[in-house]
Structures are given as structure tokens and as C-alpha cells.
């Protein structure tokens, strides 16, 4: 996963994300925003899942699906 792209994205607290290279914009929910933050902090996917389990008080299965899906989407949109 190439995380360099994350540093150029303009991410607002409302969850609005603007990619200044492609001009595309996206919206993310609170969980998505948190995943962005953790990716930018260079956390591994496993670390992100553990942190989210703790913060959102949810199961490993649920978190795994959400994180995997979200990262797949980021790849699909060439954001990582």
C-alpha cells in the first residue's frame, strides 16, 4: 500500500475529502475518517483494527470487514 498520496489529500473534520491531484472529492463517515488518520500515522492494518475495536467497542469480525473494505475502496480510487 502506497501511503504517500494520503499526505496530499485535504481531509476536513466533516469527512469531506478532496484529492488536489485528480480533483475528485469523497465523503467518509466517522469510522472512515479515523482509518484515514491511523493510516497517516503509519499504523499497520492489524494495529488499525485493534485500535478501532477498542474505540468503537465492536467485534474483531466487524472491524476486519470494515477496514478491509475501506482500504480496498481507497485502492480502487487510487488514494493509497
Amino acid at each position: 500500500m502506497d501511503r504517500d498520496k494520503l499526505s496530499v489529500l485535504a481531509i476536513s473534520d466533516s469527512g469531506f475529502i478532496f484529492d488536489p491531484v485528480t480533483g475528485h472529492s469523497y465523503t467518509a463517515n466517522a469510522t472512515g475518517l479515523r482509518i484515514f488518520e491511523l493510516l497517516k500515522e503509519d499504523k499497520s492494518e492489524d494495529e488499525i483494527k485493534s485500535i478501532l475495536m477498542e474505540e468503537f467497542e465492536t467485534t474483531e469480525d466487524e472491524v476486519s470487514v470494515d477496514v478491509d473494505d475501506f482500504i480496498e475502496n481507497l485502492k480502487k480510487y487510487f488514494l493509497v
Binding site: P20, V21, T22, G23, H24, S25
Partner: peptide, 20 residues
């Protein structure tokens, strides 16, 4: 720019400035 909306004639209607 990225063209966000174009007309039926293919003309830019809305756009956003980009740094690429």
C-alpha cells in the same frame, strides 16, 4: 482543472482547479 460537468456540446460547465 478537472472538468466536473460538461454540456451536450462537450463544453466545460463546472470545474475544479487541481495540482497535477
Amino acid at each position: 482543472i478537472r472538468k466536473m460537468t460538461i454540456t451536450k456540446l462537450g463544453k466545460v460547465w463546472n470545474a475544479v482547479s487541481i495540482k497535477n
